[in-house]
Amino acid sequence: MIKRVIVLLFLLGLGLLFIAFMQGYTPDSELNLTGRYYAEHTAQDIGATNIVTAIIVTYRGLDTIGEVTVLFLTAAIVGMLLSRGNRKGKSLQRELPQSGELLTTGSYLLVPLILLLGAYVFINGHLTPGGGFQGGAIVASAILLMLLTDPLRHFSHQLIAIVESISGLLFVIIGVLGLFYAGGFLDNRILPTGELGSLFSAGAIPVIYSLIGLKVGAEFSSMLVNLSETEDS
């Protein structure tokens, strides 16, 4: 009981702080300096129409490398934690109810479409909303649909690992190429900037974002597959 009172008091204090913050807050009517710089220079310098993509891939490209690394570490830790259940031939002996014919057929119909949508999202990252992270999550959703249809389905861990590491390696190599042939690490102007608004524009951004998409999709997929292959306790 005393604990609950302490929690409530703490939350009350936090709420008062929030209210004070909200009363003092006035929305900006103009872009601040950073935002104005990005808005005015992205189209000429980078050639991408989606400014958020330009920020994530080029202006703040190092942060993205860090983020992808954090995701990779997470996937690796999940795999390590649950690796006990991966002994071959022994996993999942219990009987599962059949998944109906309709769901099986429907998933065979929908999985290619979901993969196609994922590819569309990460290839068009510089023109439309979306990009590597979204596309990777959509690709992983396709894997999830397969898992939901047939939990005993075997996924090749090797294929996932190969896709993951090759795309990560290419990502870093492209970054280093930017160091030699353009302004700096992860500069996108190693390829021509192209015409604003067409698919082959914005230099290396579509390539880099596709690689990020493949990498993120492989990481999420490996998390899902590792989780679903654990033994029933």
Partner: peptide, 27 residues
């Protein structure tokens, strides 16, 4: 999805569809 018949998006589309067709056999 793209809404255009431009040659560049068509090339990328052929590549993507081909790889999905080859990778996902039971589609």
């Amino acid at each position: 999805l793209n809404g255009t018949l431009a040659i560049d998006s068509l090339i990328v589309g052929i590549f993507v569809s081909l790889s999905i067709t080859l990778l996902f056999c039971s589609g």
